[in-house]
Amino acid sequence: MLELRLVQGGLLKKVLESLKDLVNDANFDCSASGFSLQAMDSSHVALVALLLRSEGFEHYRCDRNLSLGMNLNNMAKMLKCAANDDIVTIKADDASDSVTFMFESPNQDKIADFEMKLMDIDSEHLGIPEAEFQAIVRMPSAEFARICKDLSTIGDTVVISVTKEGVKFSTRGDIGTANIVCRQNPSIDKPEEATIIEMEEPVSLTFALRYMNSFTKATPLANQVTISLSADLPVVVEYRVAEMGYIRFYLAPKIEE
């Protein structure tokens, strides 16, 4: 028996909106520690890892580990029917082939339940080791989204270079080139507007903008995004999910051949 009650139901709506274009079907793993997901995009170039810790739920009951295979587009459709301030409860029986989403309005005058069919999904689970990164950039998520959107009108790839001076996003396309440099800015008064660069050594990596733009669908979840870079490693683009967890996107770098 699984029963997870999330007062901030809007968070789950935002999580699904940020996942559904990248991944079609995925297993949500429920254990005593939390509600998590790990999935690759269909071309195996990007990976997403979601964790919502059990402590973040108002009520969290998970009698035994369960894997719920869901079509994320269909799940997003159902969650779209919840209001942003609704309380969302996810329920599933151990042997059931369906999951129920219950939406309660904050003053309890409207209660809805939506039942969705589960599916069997064969998924490859990857072990993600803790890595030391050469550079970690923390910046406003809206700024990062704007940069990715702007650059994708000019080129298909972005070169992210971190130096002492700041972080540079560059692209090139048929019509020309573009470079955007964001300098370190501690913004003590408004920490959500800060740009902080922790650099062990300079790093420069190339990525497909199509994926970066897809990751920025998570922008409504957090004011800040963390971009962790190391030569020859996938970039990690992380958005915090309130105080309860994170959504991390991993993207393999492009290599010159």
């Binding site: 690759m40 195996h44 990857l126 290599i255 010159e256």
Partner: peptide, 14 residues
């Protein structure tokens, strides 16, 4: 040619 590498190449299968 610019090649995108598969993410599986970076992580161990668990």
């Amino acid at each position: 040619v610019n090649q995108q590498r598969q993410i599986t190449a970076f992580f161990s299968k668990s």
